[in-house]
Design a protein around this nucleic acid. Structure first.
Ligand SMILES: [Zn+2]
Ligand SMILES: [Zn+2]
Ligand SMILES: [Zn+2]
Ligand SMILES: [Zn+2]
Ligand SMILES: [Zn+2]
Ligand SMILES: [Zn+2]
Length: 835
DNA sequence: GAGTTTGAAACT
DNA sequence: CAGTTTCAAACTC
């Protein structure tokens, strides 16, 4: 009632208020128009300070889409790819056509380290020209829904869907085709946008990120790849390279074709995109599985098809709408080059947020949205080439995205480096335990009450109207579902404007509010593995929360602790008292964990914690360090920015795409939403579909197992380098458990330079095994971890994990794509070398 | 399912 | 930035 806010909270400005009533497009429009956003200009400011980096990490979507459905189905988006710089864009031509589409993107970013973590962000953002940093803007957007894309300077965006064609980028034809296809077959839901930004920073560590997306339907095949070249980027310009892809199934395909056609690896950097279709709903879990199986490519179609195909399930995310507004926002941002967008929100939003964008010109960003989602995985093998983009000059990126379902949001991106992102908020799931169990079973189901099918949790908010971060749904960037037991809920598509405004408001305070909270640093692993498995990479061990917990009574042994809930150990950023986090106590992280491969690895668990620190410290040098600087952690810096904006916003999503490296360490963030969203769908518009399903949101049960689920959910994995730890796992399989946990959340990998320094892979070994185990088995506590955790993790999906990978990639920072491409795999070598 | 505990989010 | 309040999930019973 009336309580204070009677109505929807007004978000930010109130003025605008968006009452629910206002859903109408008009409002949206207005909203968009309104300068509010600028709020933080930060976005701009921060974000683009000039340059590069993206300020926004998450960016919420500014625009509001009206409904996704419309979009998606109707027309998709198109994909555009442009490369500005030297070349132009690549277009796709034709193609092969396979059904699968994959995108790989690798990005190399340099990580910089700025001094402080915190600052780092700012720095990034601010740095205007980025002095050192260049920003490349590469944007990749894949939206199905959104028509608009914006690129920076160079790039233009197509404005609307229709217009899209115009764009220079990809061949219009292709796009159109996509549309058709999409329309027809696909629901169109997927949109993936990844914003990436590459920056070079001083040192330039660059990170690469690869994302692969495969379409489910199509098949596995992977086959197609698309590569785009970016040339270098100019330093300043952000825009230089922008790539936008829209993927949809069809879309993807075509792209592929095109890609192939053109394919080229172009110059310095090339991008590969692989898109797969997204699946909608359900699938999350399944996706995961599939994911694994396919590794990157494959995604199960079913999901997509099933759900997606025709119907849209409900999505939590954005179903709604996007607002018409779009244009405006976009244009501005886009056009100008950037962006200006007020809002940065970036991470997933419900809605789609739109994001804003940004871009600023400078920074390079790539956005990927995925609407429906699927999973993203990187693929590599085949493609391998991946590329890298580097920024240096140009930066190239490769993204591969698979979308998975929204459900969990899992998106996995693999970067060579391996970063993953976890979702924002909590995992959520309550039932984790169950799930774990369930995982395997296909059916399973469901879980607890809390969760819904899709995997998302359902909230029970009574006084927050689901417009505050207290609400898990809202925090995750998704709309409340029917299953939610919330009261006076405004987190619904009908109130999209309100939701968006509120988001923006929140973001204005904390740009990373919707960003993934967990970052992983992973170590690289063997290349081969990595690719395929990416997901596996998760390493709980390496992952940590950005903000850290402040537990006083739970000793970080219960889910009250966000770190624990996310299945990650506490880091220096945590202010917990009496930390006994099974995944790692505070000190450890900072220290660097070392796992020795052989030696210590096993120990990991408990021992590790206490001892680790010590050990680590000492060894760390020797062995490896995982992760991240403590500093990084916390702050994480996220770097994301999102550029986008758009209405659809989608774009943003991935904002992260950007992978940002953290300046400091080079972490990368993925946008949470992105990830999550991705899952949700948010991505682009966010559409999230969260659930996918139609059915229920959550879970569906299905299939897949936990792992998959987990993966999917969270997982966005970026493969940066080849690293993937998985190797050990090898295969597909990844330990379930392990995976799960991690998987749950999205992960982003970070590269950490530091790591590089040392060792190569501690994690691998250890992690592979240990991580999970540690947790799990353990001694301590683990309570349920295995299972539950996994499940939990899944939930976490929302969260993202970032992994930092030091990986070698970095080594190359940026570098060329080619090199990278090759190298990545070689990672091992690198390691050795590094070592 | 009600009630308690908990720590993040929000607010001051 | 710290202290307090609010909040909903996690947990307990
Ligand atoms: Zn709620
Ligand atoms: Zn809800
Ligand atoms: Zn609600
Ligand atoms: Zn804690
Ligand atoms: Zn903690
Ligand atoms: Zn702790």
């Amino acid at each position: 009632m009336d309580s204070p806010e009677s109505s929807p909270p007004a978000s930010t400005s109130n003025a605008s208020e968006t009452a629910p009533v206002e859903d109408s497009p008009v409002f949206s429009y207005i909203s968009n128009l309104s300068p509010l956003q600028p709020v933080k200009s930060s976005s701009v400011t921060q974000g683009f300070p000039g340059l590069n980096s993206p300020p926004l990490v998450f960016a919420s979507p500014q625009l509001i889409p009206h409904k996704r459905a419309q979009f998606s189905r109707t027309s998709f988006d198109k994909l555009q790819v442009r490369l500005e710089d030297s070349k132009n864009s690549v277009t796709t031509d034709k193609g092969h056509g396979e059904q699968n589409i994959q995108l790989n993107t690798s990005i190399a970013a340099s990580t910089e380290k700025s001094s402080d973590s915190n600052s780092s962000v700012d720095e990034l953002i601010q740095s205007p020209s980025g002095s050192c940093e260049q920003v490349l803007e590469d944007i990749v957007n894949v939206d199905s829904s959104d028509p608009n894309f914006s690129f920076d300077s160079t790039i233009k965006k197509s404005e609307r869907n229709d217009q899209l064609a115009n764009a220079p980028t990809c061949s219009t034809e292709t796009v159109e085709n996509f549309r058709h296809e999409l329309n027809s077959g696909i629901t169109g839901e997927l949109a993936v946008t990844h914003p990436f930004t590459c920056k070079e920073t001083e040192d330039a560590q660059t990170e690469l990120i690869l994302i692969n997306a495969s379409a489910s339907e199509k098949a596995m095949g992977q086959g197609d790849e698309v590569s785009v070249n970016c040339s270098t980027v100019g330093t300043e310009l952000p825009a230089n390279n922008a790539v936008v892809y829209r993927s949809e199934d069809n879309f993807m395909t075509e792209l592929q074709n095109a890609k192939t056609g053109q394919a080229a690896p172009l110059d310095q950097s090339s991008h590969l995109l692989t898109g797969s279709k997204a699946f909608q709903n359900r699938g999350v879990r399944r996706r995961c599985l599939q994911f694994e199986n396919a590794q990157h490519n494959i995604i199960s179609n079913r999901l997509a098809q099933d759900t997606s195909d025709g119907e849209k399930p409900k999505t939590r995310f954005l179903e709604t709408p996007l607002m018409p507004i779009d244009g405006k926002l976009y244009p501005q941002n886009t056009l100008n080059s950037s962006i200006k967008l007020p809002k940065p929100s970036g991470f997933g939003l419900h809605l789609n947020s739109i994001l804003n964008t940004v871009q600023a010109g400078s920074a390079a960003t790539i956005n990927v949205k995925t609407a429906q989602w699927d999973c993203v995985s990187a693929t590599t093998d085949g493609n391998t080439h991946e590329t890298h983009a580097c920024a240096s000059d140009g930066s190239s990126l490769s993204l591969a995205t698979n979308v998975v379902e929204p459900d969990n949001n899992s998106v996995t991106l693999n970067s060579n480096s391996n970063q993953s992102i976890l979702g924002n908020k909590r995992n959520t799931e309550k039932g984790s335990g169950l799930e774990g169990t369930n995982n395997l079973s296909p059916k399973k189901k469901r879980m607890n009450t809390t969760e819904s099918d899709d995997g998302y949790k359902r909230c029970n908010c009574k006084r927050s109207k689901c417009l505050k971060l207290y609400c898990d749904c809202f925090a995750a960037g998704i709309y409340c579902a029917d299953d939610c037991s919330c009261q006076e809920c405004f987190n619904r598509p009908d109130y999209e404007e309100t939701v968006i405004e509120t988001r923006q408001k929140i973001e204005s305070r904390d740009p990373f509010a919707f960003a993934p909270r967990v970052v992983q640093h992973i170590i690289e692993q063997s290349p081969s593995v990595s690719r395929g498995e990416d997901r596996s990479n998760f390493t709980p061990a390496s992952a940590r929360h950005k903000k850290g917990c402040k537990c006083k009574k739970s000793m970080c042994l219960k889910k009250y602790c966000e770190c624990y809930q996310a299945n990650v150990g506490c880091s220096d950023g945590c202010r917990c008292e009496g930390c006994k986090n099974v995944f790692g106590q505070k000190g450890e992280y900072g220290m660097a964990k070392v796992f020795l491969a052989g030696e210590d690895s096993q120990e990991t668990t408990d021992d590790l914690s206490a001892e680790k620190c010590e050990i680590d410290a000492s060894r760390s040098h020797t062995y490896h360090i995982e992760f991240v600087n403590p500093n990084n952690l916390t702050p994480l810096t996220p770097a994301f920015q999102f550029p986008n904006h758009e209405k659809d916003g989608s774009a943003a999503w991935f904002p992260s795409g950007k992978h940002f490296q953290s300046p400091e360490s080079g972490l990368t963030y993925a946008s949470p939403y992105a990830m999550s969203s991705a899952s949700h769908n948010i991505s682009a518009n966010n559409a999230v579909i969260p659930e996918s399903s139609k059915e229920s949101r959550h879970g569906n049960g299905n299939t897949v197992d936990e792992l998959s689920a987990a993966r999917s959910r969270s997982s966005l994995v970026w493969q940066g380098s080849p690293i993937t730890p998985m190797a050990e796992f090898s295969g597909s399989k990844v330990p379930q458990e392990d995976v799960f946990e991690f998987g749950l959340s999205n992960t982003v990998q970070d590269d950490t330079p530091e790591i590089l320094k040392d060792s190569p892979t501690p994690l691998n070994t250890v992690k592979a095994n240990s991580p999970n185990r540690k947790r799990v088995s353990p001694p301590h506590g683990q309570p349920h971890e295995h299972t539950s955790s996994s499940s939990a993790d899944l939930r976490i999906a929302r969260k993202f994990i970032l992994k930092a990978v030091p990986s070698f990639p970095p080594l190359t920072p940026c570098i060329d794509s080619k090199t990278l491409a090759v190298q990545p795999d070689s990672s091992p070598e690198n390691r050795d070398d590094n070592k």
